[in-house]
Structures are given as C-alpha cells and as structure tokens.
Design a protein around this nucleic acid. Structure first.
Lengths: 175, 175
DNA sequence: GTCTATATCCAGATAGAC
DNA sequence: GTCTATCTGGATATAGAC
C-alpha cells in the first residue's frame, strides 16, 4: 500500500515492493500468484469496510445532520487507509480496466445507497412526507458521494488544502 | 488521447499509440522526444482552456444560479474533451508524480479561484454584505469544485449514472 | 518526413538451493 | 518458507534506408 500510494499501481515495480517489504522475490511470489493479484488484494483491502461507518446511521437519535455524517465518514476513512492517494489510483485503474470497474463501482453504489437511506430519514426528520423524503434522498445522494470524492481529490492534489474549512463549509449548505 | 482515456498512461504502450495513429515508431519519435513528453502534451491539451468558461461569469446579467454555472462548466468540459476518463488518469498521474502535481493542482486552484469570484457576486446578489459574501465564497468554492470532480468520477465509474438527475439535484441545494 | 528493423533495457516471473 | 540467480518477454527508443 505504501508503494502504490506513492507511485501508483503501474509505476510500482515488484522490485519496489520487494525492497519496501524487506522480503525477496521468491517469498512474495509464494504469497501472491502475480502482481495483478497483489493489486487486487490491496484494492479490496482498501475498499473493504468503507461502508461500515454508514450502516444503521438512520436509526441514531438524535439524527446527525448531513455535514456531520460526511465528516465522520471522511475522518474514519482517512484514519483507516492512510494516504488517500491510493484511492485515486484505484479509481484510475478502474476507469482503465473494464474488468475491475465492477468492484469499484459496486462500492460507490453501496455508499450511495447507504447515504440514501440516511438522507431519507433526515428529510423525514425535517418534516417532509415519506414519498417526498424518499425522492429527495435519491436525488441528493449522488451529490453527497461527490462531496466525499471531491474532498479526497483535493486533499491529494491541492497543497495546503483546508480540510477543516471544507467541513465547516458543509454546514453552510442545506440540502 | 483515445489510447490514454482507454487504458491510462502507463498501460498504454507506444505500440498502441503507433497503431491508433496509423503512423510508425520513427514518425512519432520525430514529433515527440519520448513518451513522457507525449503524455505532458496531452495533459496540457486536456487541461488547457478548462477555465475559459468561468471567466467574467460574475459580470453576467442576470447572474445565473450556481447550479446553472456548474452545469454549463461540466457540459462544456464533456463536449471538449470527450471521454472524461482521461481526467481521472491525469489526477492519478499527478497524485503519483510530485513533479507533475504542480500543473494539475494549478488548474484546480485556478478553477477554485474563478468559482470564488462568481460566488462572491452571487452571494452579494442574494443580499449578503460585501465582506460576508467574500467569506462565504471562499468557504463554499471548494465544495463546488468537489461537485464537479465527483460528477466526473461518477460519470466514469458508475454504470448508467443519471447526469440529468445530478444537475436537477444541484437545484435543490442552497449554498 | 516516414518507414522497417533492431538494439537495449528492465519488468515480471520462475527454478532450485538452503 | 525464504533466498539468490536467472530466464523471458515486451517495452522504449534509435539507426539508417527510402
């Protein structure tokens, strides 16, 4: 993960991984059949449990506002996976490999569905009728996903990005 | 660009580019010193003029709402660069190469500054005082950037992504 | 200006000793 | 289970003819 976050999947050579791990070529190939399998393993490792923070969120009382939910999710993610650059690498790899897009888009869709469930509760809590709350949740969920993805991209790409300012700004928008 | 959007920078071989272009190795190397220079050229080509749509926007009357501005920007971008997958590849390359991050983050910062200028006008238009409008614009601009980036990612990664629904949802949020 | 043919290098992967 | 040494393929880049 250190190697891949640093240089991306393709630019990382097995030699880099051998050096970083302190093992030898033979040892590594006894654990992973080839480089692709290693990448797959790391990708699953990174994406796994990304949804856990959002499970059952809609049953919390008091129901936290969207800004707090997004902050919690991103905080948890940052804490879990370290350098979020690896996520950008995963997105790019998925965009370039039709066979791997499924796993990544599956996670995105799962997150969206979980946000959707939370938002339905939130809008109902705010006084919308059941049907209206549901429709609004479906519409807004992709924006919430985008706000998470854009945060990650800017953390990685923008020097001196103001993460706290970003979270504070989330409080200013009403969905 | 076709090759790079399809497979990413690293996984695209010069042989792929030779085939796609219909030229020979020798011909291509007479135009570009090496592969890296070719990548740089394509990257600049894609990022160039990305900011043009947002120039002078704050002087338009009537001042368009944020949702319309974002839609216009993304529509223009989609029309200009074709498959937005190449943008995801550019982000990943920048995240992995400290020497190339500068150009990409420069464009992100430029876009953010332009959105900021527009938002200042928008919030003033909405009745906020000059100082308050300025502060709010600075705070909210990164969110607007994120909404653009997230749109691009979801277009690329989510099968059957509902672009029109996304734009419609932007109207629902007030900043 | 463009082609073919090829030199050179380096990455991924393996064999077999220990 | 892990190591060293090495094979093999494919990638970038070049030389020189046309």
């Amino acid at each position: 993960m250190l190697c891949f976050a640093r240089a991306g999947f393709e630019a990382t050579s097995m030699a880099d991984i051998i050096t970083e791990s302190g093992l030898s070529a033979g040892a590594i190939y006894s654990y992973f059949k080839n480089k692709q399998e290693l990448i797959l393993h790391v990708t699953q490792d990174v994406l796994e449990n990304r949804a856990a923070d959002l499970e059952g969120l809609e049953k919390q009382t008091p129901l936290p506002p969207p800004a707090a939910v997004i902050r919690m999710f991103l905080d948890g993610m940052t804490h879990d996976i370290g350098n979020p650059s690896i996520l950008v690498q995963i997105w790019a790899a998925a965009a370039a490999a039709p066979e791997s897009v499924e796993m990544v888009s599956g996670v995105v869709l799962e997150l969206r569905a979980l946000y959707e469930r939370y938002l339905r509760a939130w809008f109902a809590h705010r006084g919308l009728g059941e049907k209206e709350a549901g429709e609004r949740a479906v519409a807004v969920a992709p924006l919430v996903v985008a706000l998470c993805q854009g945060y990650i991209l800017q953390i990685v790409l923008v020097p001196d990005f103001d993460a706290d300012g970003y979270f504070a700004a989330l409080d200013l928008v009403t969905m």
